[in-house]
Amino acid sequence: MASNFKGRDIISVRELSKDDILRVLTLAESLKKTPRPNLLQGMVMGSCFFEPSTRTRLSFETAMQKLGGRVVGFADPNVTSAQKGETLYDAIKIIGQYVDVIAMRHPLEGAARRAAEATDKPILNGGDGANQHPTQTLLDLFTIQECQKKINNLTITMVGDLKYGRTVHSLAQALIHFKPKFYFVAPEFLQMPDYILAELKSAGIAFQKKNTIKEVIAQSDILYMTRIQKERFSDISEYEKVKDVYVLGNDLLAKAKPNLRVLHPLPRVNEIATEVDATPHAYYFQQAENGLYVRQALLGLVCGKL
C-alpha cells in the first residue's frame, strides 16, 4: 500500500515502495490529462538551488505555479547567506518558516537529508551532488510507462557513463520493482558499479554488460542514453577510441523494434545525433516535459492536497 505522502520528504528513491511509485505515476498521468490550476492556491514553494540548474528548477517552479501556488527562492547560492558562511541547516530552518514546501538542489551529497532535519516542511530533493535525484527517476519511470503502455517486463538498455551517472543508478534501482531485463553498454571502466549489480542480482533481475549499442538494439524496448564526459578519461586517446561507439544515429536505429523509445536525462551534447529527433523513436523531449507532471503530482501529494 502507498504510504501517506502528506508532509513527507522525497529524498531518495530507495525510500519509495512500489505502491508509492505507482501512485505518483497515476497522479502524474491524471494531471497531464486534467490540469488542476487551483490545487495549491495560497501555498508557497521555496525554490532553493544552491547549484545551477535549468530544467529541474524551471520545471519545479512551473509545476507549482500551474497548480495555483507561488514560488520564492534563488537560483544562485552567491545571493544567499551561504556566502557568509551560514550552514545549510540554518538556511533551511529559516526558509521552512516562510514556505509550505521546499524544492532544493545542492552540490554536496546528503544535503537534502540534512535539510530535512532542519524543517518540518516537506523537502523535495532536486539533486544532491552525485547522490540522488528522485524526481528524475520518477519522471523516467513515468515516461517509460507512457511510451511503452506498460512498465513491467521491459528490456532496458542503458548506454554511456554508467559508473558516475546518478540517473542510471537510481533508475536501475527503482526498476527492480518492475522485473526488467537490463543491458549495460559502456567501456569497462565506466560500467555500472558493482554495488548496483549486486542489488540487481540479489533481486533476481537479469542483466548483461555489453560493449556496443549494435549488439542489443534489436532486443531493446528502451534505450536510455547518457553523456560520456571527456574529462573522465585519463588518456585522451582512449576517449577518441570510444567516443563514437556510444553515439546513436539513424543507422543504428534501422534494426530497432518499432516500439523502441530513446530516452536521455539531458542535456545531450553529441551522443544522440540530431537526425534521431525526427524519428518516432525519439522520446527525450517528451521525457523532459513529463518532469512537470511528476513534480506536480509530488507537490500535490506532499502538500496533502492529492
Partner: peptide, 8 residues
C-alpha cells in the same frame, strides 16, 4: 563530498 564533512 558528504554534507557531514562540510558542516557540523
Amino acid at each position: 563530498k558528504c554534507i557531514t564533512n562540510s558542516e557540523a
